[in-house]
Amino acid sequence: MPELVTIPISYFEVAINYERPVFQLWIDRATVLQGIFDALKPWNPHINDTEPRNEGKPSEQGIVVKLPLKRASFFFGPATCKFSRDDADWSSADETIAILDAALTALTLFGHVVLGKKSTALNLHIQPQTLAFMDLLSPFVPRELAAIESQPIRTMASVAKWENRKVTIDGSGALANGLFLRLERDFEAGATYEEIASQLRRDEAELFTIIGIEEDRG
């Protein structure tokens, strides 16, 4: 019987490197920003929710457009763009896709960028309803490691990386008695949003099964 859990905190990220840097985006961002701002109009962007980032390496500089009501933000610079949405869940996946698509379409149209691989990350802070979080994490502790000390392990993390995928299982630093899961997967540039969403959903379900948890949607 899987442990019922709630997911009080979650966020979704997509980072995309361009096929080659577009230096025009470093020098003159106004046209692209205008295009993205207009494309995001259905979600009521406000000029004060745009934020230039002029510090750091050239690749880190750019502009962030935020949609506070949707808890979504979109950053673009001369070499990369990044979308993030807090409180992301599957019931709002269509809306998340619509916001992301609007921003990316405007960026490619007005910024003349060619988008490369899409690096996605689904981040979940999970709270079990009856078990202690270490009860769920302890199967992932190698026996040899656990045997180093006689005292019980207080927390642990496990990270597995593949060519296009990475999974992190950790204790939550934000929730009492919580787990933190980060599911990262890279998709080819041509992957559709629907393919990405359904794959990530399968990844989440697979990991939940391995950990022995089920989201309490009641």
Binding site: D86, F133, T155, M156, T168, D170, A174, F180
Partner: peptide
């Protein structure tokens, strides 16, 4: 209690900013 990832947040600050008017 986390063991590995120090940053477990999106980094966005959603406190409403002060808008004109």
């Amino acid at each position: 209690m986390n063991a590995y990832l120090e940053l477990q947040a999106s980094g966005n600050n959603w406190i409403p900013s002060v808008h004109d008017m």
